[in-house]
């Protein structure tokens, strides 16, 4: 037969899953849409502007970096879009617009491309961008706008301090000037763009879990650790626990940032250790630290420990003895 040389030859397997890096990233973007809608609803068109700027600059910086590094173009994998969205979700609506590209540059150029691009960064790029902005411009990064105070004439809205600062002062079941629990759940509270609406984040998180994009291990253990810690710290006050779970960027961090593939362990045990670590550091910063919020720092700190966590949690290859001693005895 005359087919020779026309046939494709490749190593087995010859069937592959239809999932690609791009399709996974697209799923994450879809999962972020509810939070995006909520952010525009609560904080107005300026929120959308910041989100568009952040995404736009992230994609542009990725594009330029790849050209400079003479590497294959990777903007098509959509991961820069996610970084852009997550970075914007971690910014307050009142942030001066010129700060947004600085955050994008740190996230994409420094945290991601300097280390080799997708899959190689050792910290979550969006969080790196946020933390650099937070330490450089602490005032701009912690000026909060009261949700739904924007109008078409006055887009800026009214600013005030974050509820989380008040929560820590909460002594009994008195909630005082805090938003009600329902308001906390639907997102009618001060905070960064994408972090306030717990419902929207949960819908997105659930979508990722159902689509098997992420496993529920990290979010559940992370939230569980914080809940347990706060239960003890709040002397059994369940309302306090609920406010702590819904407050700040915990929900967003637990479902969308601690679960980042590249910067979380791939082993099951590793995921648990990682999530417990995130939960503990978040809680300690919140209760004992001077900062009102500890989610970004906790995730970044645990990101750095990922290689170590993975090294100690590697599964034993099939059929090998469980303990080193047994191996030596043979």
């Amino acid at each position: 037969m005359t087919l020779n040389n026309k046939l494709v030859v490749s190593a087995s397997p010859h069937d592959r899953t239809h999932k690609t890096v791009r399709s996974l990233m697209l799923d994450v973007i879809i999962a972020l849409i509810p939070a995006l809608v909520a952010s525009v609803f609560f904080f107005g068109p300026r929120a959308l502007l910041i989100e568009c700027l952040s995404v736009g600059f992230c994609v542009i910086f990725e594009y330029i970096s790849r050209i400079f590094m003479k590497r294959e173009q990777t903007i098509g994998d959509l991961s820069a879009v996610i970084t852009g969205l997550l970075l914007a979700f971690n910014l307050p609506v009142s942030i001066p617009l010129w700060m947004v590209p600085i955050g994008s540059a740190v996230a994409i150029v420094v945290a991601k491309q300097f280390f080799g691009g997708i899959g190689q960064n050792f910290v979550n790029p969006a969080l790196a961008g946020r933390i650099v902005l937070l330490t450089s411009f602490p005032v701009a990064m912690s000026t909060w706008t009261v949700p739904r105070t924007w109008t078409m004439q006055q887009l800026d809205g009214i600013t005030k301090a974050s509820p989380l600062a008040d929560i820590h002062n909460m002594t009994s079941s008195e909630t005082g000037g805090l938003p009600t629990l329902v308001e906390m759940i639907i997102g009618q509270r001060e905070g960064c763009l994408g972090e306030t609406c717990a419902i929207a984040i949960l819908i997105g998180g659930l979508y990722l879990i159902i689509r098997k994009v992420i496993s529920p291990t990290i979010p559940l253990v992370y939230l569980g650790t914080v809940a347990l810690f706060m239960l003890v710290a709040g002397k059994g006050n369940l309302l306090f626990v609920a406010y702590e779970l819904l407050g700040g960027g915990l929900m967003l961090g637990a479902f969308f940032m601690a679960t980042d593939y590249t910067t979380s362990p791939i082993t099951f045990k590793g995921k648990i250790i990682f999530a417990i670590g995130c939960g503990l550091i978040t809680s300690i910063i919140r209760i004992f630290g001077n900062l009102p919020e500890g989610v970004s720092y906790s995730i970044i700190l645990m990101n750095i420990l990922v290689p170590l966590i993975e090294n100690i949690t590697l599964p034993k290859p099939f059929g090998t003895p469980k303990k080193e001693k047994e191996a030596k005895a043979k």
Partner: peptide, 19 residues
């Protein structure tokens, strides 16, 4: 072929617990 994103699917799929 694209870059590895460390999603860990290979490790969860391995019936022999390899990474």
């Amino acid at each position: 072929e694209t870059d590895c994103i460390r999603c860990g699917r290979c490790a969860s799929a391995c019936p022999l617990s390899l990474v």
